[in-house]
Design a protein around this nucleic acid. Structure first.
Lengths: 118, 118
DNA sequence: GTCGATATATAGAGCGACGATATACAGACC
DNA sequence: GGTCTGTATATCGTCGCTCTATATATCGAC
């Protein structure tokens, strides 16, 4: 019996979602800060362009994985602060495991059963 | 000093390329057989639609990672048999390591430093 | 007063997988 | 003879998603 097929096309999006949600594990963040955090914490390996980030934030909020509210500031451009919902937390854990499993299976196929990991 | 940024968009393609090249490690294959092998060996987790597969094969041949030649058969539809070139073998090894590294870094960020792997 | 950093947002371009469709050969079944 | 299924390669149009570019807005520094 064949299992569910892996969605290759949606993988890029999955990775971006994981990155956004993971920064919110440490507390509330607004969009611009999320982009900075991801780039800093990954030493530039992962990076968000704002044309990618904001649509993702809107979609995640719509899906109930994050919750956003406009913070009131006396000075500066207004920000939208996002927090991780319990639904988002659960998704984050499940998705991380799923990515690990899929890539593990992929590397096993690519390297063959007898070949050790570098 | 920031390292090179990870290309999120090209990751789906990278995965498909890895799958194609890995089946050719076991010997020459034609396109249709590659698709069957990938699906069988992964127990249906990974899967190729022919609208995806053939363009990839053409591009890989153009890039010199695989080499194709039409097999002469008395009966049946003619096939194009592909073999892995030395360039393709090298790419396969390097790319597998790269995927592993990137995903490792991703999961480390997502799970945090103190959290063990499931 | 203009430049750069902060901050959010959208429209359009472009890349790549996917679904549909086409072509072609062979065996089975009626 | 005609149809259906399985083998086998190929292309086109669509769709989803990232990326570039652009727009708007606030503020400090020069």
């Amino acid at each position: 019996m064949a299992e569910d097929s892996f969605d290759v096309q949606g993988f890029a999006r999955d990775i971006n979602v994981l990155l956004v949600l993971s920064t919110l594990r440490h507390g509330a963040r607004h969009g611009y800060q999320i982009a900075l955090d991801v780039e800093t914490e990954s030493n530039g390996l992962f990076r968000f362009r704002h044309g990618t980030l904001y649509p993702i934030l809107h979609r995640l909020e719509e899906d109930g994985l994050i919750h956003g509210r406009w913070s009131r500031r006396e000075k500066g451009r207004r920000r939208k602060e996002y927090t991780l919902t319990s639904k988002g937390e659960a998704y984050l854990r499940g998705e991380a495991d799923r990515v690990e499993t899929v890539v593990d299976r992929l590397l096993r196929m690519v390297r063959g059963p007898g070949e050790a990991t570098a």
